[in-house]
Design a protein around this nucleic acid. Structure first.
Lengths: 333, 333
DNA sequence: TTGTACGCGTTATCAT
DNA sequence: ATGATAACGCGTACAA
């Protein structure tokens, strides 16, 4: 591999001069600069990033922590982040985490050995030790889709509870009162969306029945299908179901159709997220939209600005969610 | 950050000894080893990866090149790769590429500056210059879902043409003769699947009509919907449609239902890939399954073995695709 | 304006 | 069995 020394030799200057040219610093005669640039181009030379990070003590890399089995919502989110991080001149290093202590420990070890410039969490960790480490080290960080009050990290998310209420109220306004709820485990948004569900019911004088709620292990379509099947088996007089995520809702619709129930004629379904595929289900899924793209951008901006200015800027950015009407909800007479 | 020197000082030994301990090399008294290990644990020290890659001239990182807007099939693929690369002790660095020369050039520059140990392509590049660079540098590489005869790189893929034929023959065996075809642009698999479609028709004495084929810009549901709408507008007497990918098929089903046509009663639909979501559409999508997980594993194994043994091993690994019967195809009496 | 020398954290080589 | 030293490729004080 050609190094800065090779270029220096070929250009008849010292390595420092080449370095100055490459990093666009002053104190280089413009003709020398041009000459060096010519050689660089001719040889197709590019700086060695590893050596560079070593001496600069930074990697121009931002870590993105994401669940190993990331869902479609998270996929769209991190695509957005990657895009904007690149615009800011950063590379992205993904960390896929599993739900195990071993996985979190392995992550912590990597974190210590990687010299990241910043980090974004799309994945909420149970164990606070990693957040503690980050805080102590002063590593620029942003949380996306959740927050951790104890640490005061900047966070980007929608008002989870209010968004869930929005979905449920949409159903109530269309005459539904027997509304089922399907949710998964882990993640604070699960609890928050459940709170939103119950708050909306209460606000309209509808009594809460535990028989209408089912909790499944994850948030994917398979879990949604299982959850809906359970709900059907309970033989409650449901006219509608609110699923905590779109993927859950898609699975619920599948279970309904497998059971000979039509959506929305027999049972209405509402999701939350508005992932791409929700526009292509049959029927189209009525849901609550999170501004995924904007949330990814904001998260990227937050860490990059923290890095640039040397200290944390804003604390929390709340986004508002909006109803997207499609065809999975029926208005009761 | 605590460095190897700090540990050495605290342990009362030289940095070389600490290095030997950390890298599990011989020639270190077991009591010294234990003492060093204790200090390491106490201080929570981990090797600095950047410095390590610099001196070792390798990064323990494998690049994975993927389209910026990767689809669900590619998502499952790279999740599998990441998993197995980690098992092999490698980190994964993703490169999201767009369809532009600028994007490919930027990638080449990064490639030169990154010291990757190997690279896997899930994305087929038009421009051969990158493949050339990789070949000249002797960088271990594997292609996944396509191959490049000119370069002789190891490749992992299904028999695209035969798999498409399989889908079409499934329809023919169920009495369909007027079979539409929806495909996207770019990527050799598009052409190959089209060849498979035509070969299956020919093998059963069904004449090919260009009016039955529609080509859309991409392979996602939105494109599938547009393609199907076009096909419907042409008012051909189709009883079935084969879509080059599942996402295309999902979009096609959406267009059909929007147009008041039922699947499979009015029109049957078959896809190719068998992505996760295809089991949850209504009706369930009948498709041809690619062994995604195994293909990801094989790609990871190929590069890792190339690295380990210092030279390329097998050349191409062909996987077989199989029909997955669900509910989107009707048997014509 | 330019060049020399050093250091970033680690490992390999060669003494001891 | 252990330690001193050089080297990896680059940026930066400081000297010239």
């Amino acid at each position: 591999m050609t190094s800065i020394k090779d270029i220096a030799r070929l250009a008849g200057v010292s390595p420092s001069t080449v370095s100055r040219v490459l990093n666009e610093r002053a104190y280089v005669r413009s003709e020398v600069r041009q000459h060096v640039l010519d050689i660089v181009k001719e040889k197709g030379y590019v700086q060695n990033h590893v050596a560079r990070s070593m001496v600069l003590q930074r990697s121009f890399t931002i870590g993105v922590v994401i669940p190993y089995l990331f869902n479609m919502f998270q996929r769209q989110l991190f695509a957005s982040m990657e895009f904007f991080l690149e615009q800011h001149g950063y590379k992205t290093q993904f960390f896929f985490l599993r739900w195990s202590d071993a996985s979190e420990q392995a992550f912590l070890r990597r974190l210590k050995s990687e010299t990241l410039d910043g980090i974004i969490f799309i994945h909420e960790l149970d164990n606070p030790s990693i957040y503690q480490y980050i805080q102590e080290r002063g590593l620029p960080v942003a949380l996306c889709t959740f927050e951790k009050q104890e640490f005061g990290f900047p966070a980007v998310h929608i008002e989870e509870e209010a968004s869930a209420s929005l979905a449920v109220e949409y159903l109530i306004q269309r005459g539904h009162r027997n509304i089922g709820f399907i949710t998964g485990e882990h993640f604070s948004f699960g609890r928050q969306r459940e709170d939103g569900y119950r708050r909306a019911l209460a606000a309209h004088g509808i009594s809460y029945s535990p028989e209408f709620t089912v909790r499944v292990p994850s948030y994917d379509p398979g879990a949604g299908r299982t959850g809906m099947l359970t709900l059907i088996k309970r033989k409650q007089p449901l006219t509608a179901v609110f699923a905590a995520t779109d993927e859950l809702a898609i699975g619920a619709m599948k279970a309904l159709s497998e059971s000979g129930l039509r959506v929305p004629e027999d049972v209405s379904v509402v999701g939350l997220d508005d992932i791409d595929i929700s526009a292509f289900t049959t029927p189209g899924l009525t849901t609550v939209r999170q501004p995924i793209f904007e949330m990814g951008k904001k998260s990227a901006d937050l860490v990059c600005e923290w890095i640039a200015r040397g200290r944390m800027q804003e604390k929390t950015e709340l986004f508002t969610a909006t109803i997207v009407e499609r065809d999975s909800v029926r208005t009761l007479n």
